[in-house]
Design a protein around this nucleic acid. Sequence first.
RNA 1: GUGCCUAUAGCUUAAUGGUAAAGCACCGCUCUGUGGUAGCGGCGAAAAGGGUUCGAUCCCCUUUAGGCACCCCA
Length: 443
Amino acid sequence: MAKSKSVQSVKGMHDILPEGQSYWKFVYKKGSNLVDDYGFNKIDTPIVESSQLFLRSVGEETDIVSKEMYNFKTRGGDEISLRPENTAGVARAYIEHGMSSWPHPVKLWYWGPMFRHDQPQAGRYRQFYQFGTEIFGDDNPAADAESIFVALGFLGSLGFKNLTLKINSIGDQNCRPHYLKVLKEFLKSKAKQLCAQCKVRAKENPLRVLDCKEESCRALFKEAPQLIDHLDENCRNHFKKVIEFLDEIKAPYMLDPFLVRGLDYYTHTVFEIILEENAKTAELEEGKAATDVAGLKGLALVAGGRYNGLVSLLGGPKTPAVGWATGIERIILAMKNLGLKVPETKSQPKIFLAQLGDFAKRKSLVLFEELRKAGINASTSLGRDSIKAQLRIANRLKVKFSVIIGHKEAIDKTAILREMDSGIQEIIPMEGIIEAVKKRLKS
RNA sequence: GUGCCUAUAGCUUAAUGGUAAAGCACCGCUCUGUGGUAGCGGCGAAAAGGGUUCGAUCCCCUUUAGGCACCCCA
């Protein structure tokens, strides 16, 4: 097989082919227009950052950094990494360019590839695109709500319905340690009944134990102390106000006391937007029953939260911030599975130029250029000499008209304009051809 | 990182322990001057490596890739 003898794409990496581009274009357009309307400005940061950045921000102990990051050493010996997410990079840029002196809040958005070395699955790649926003310098719960609202608006603009917003507060440096103590005690008392995995986690990352999907554990955790009951007054107030804002803008939400996130920098609000568990595909053909959306059950389309400690952690001034991100491959897969359609954006030529003989070929090349200058999307197949083959291409391209220049026409300084549907042809003087084409295309 | 399933041409599929077949697609010819339909022809495949066997695409092992479920996550 030719495939195996030639070079293949690296595991977990994928090509976005022309027919897939209409989805990408559509999602990008909807997303960028929306955040523009909300006053966000685009920022691009490098795909490569110093490894330190992620170790310090995302967290050395997190899976993303400890297991999934692409790390390299440069010739000079610098340790660098492919970015596994972009909040750290944007925060770094915020500090590096002195954005703290910009009028606040500083509202930024980004779109670009991220890299994580995990197991590829549907909607899950080692290089994948994320789109997201960050708001710096706004401590107000309204900024949390705005972030959530923008994320919901984005998904809504793509046609998603039946979304569930899960939200929780994980407190901050002041109150989380107290909670962890209480939680650890609880887990100790139940140690014997925990699943193997939870036993390990109870020691290493107790917060994540609450995430366990094991039925027996879940039952156990019903009595577990909840973060939300251990928030200090400041945190509780903040969370309460976020919820009030969500009520105000009528965003449907679900409090999830077990929602924790895999990045260390989060404080206060954390949230996820998932497709409802019972999301079904559109009924495609008659007789074909709707099926569960493959691979997407409970998968987060959007995730985000507040990270008030991040900027100062990276050496910048103490700056509250909040943001979210979404995975584009995942979004597009969900759109396809749900039958959400996007407009076709393939290049659609309006007319086709066919020629016979070298002299005519030269003439049609000139005309081709003139058509382009006149803003008419024309196509041609100058490499083919048989008129039959050329018209076959014209037919396949679904053009309305073909312009045919044979040897005779080239000498007479005329061209044949053929309407493809009817097959009606007329001979038009060369200098009038552009006008004639324009006129026909209009009607 | 773990477990299960899968791998035949660009795509979809077939048969077979003994020369790998077809449809679609692509290219050409019939037809250097007219497409859609037709006829004819061409291109082109066993993921890689090893083992069992007289002989392996088929049976076995390893690797690779994909899917699914974990883990984790967007």
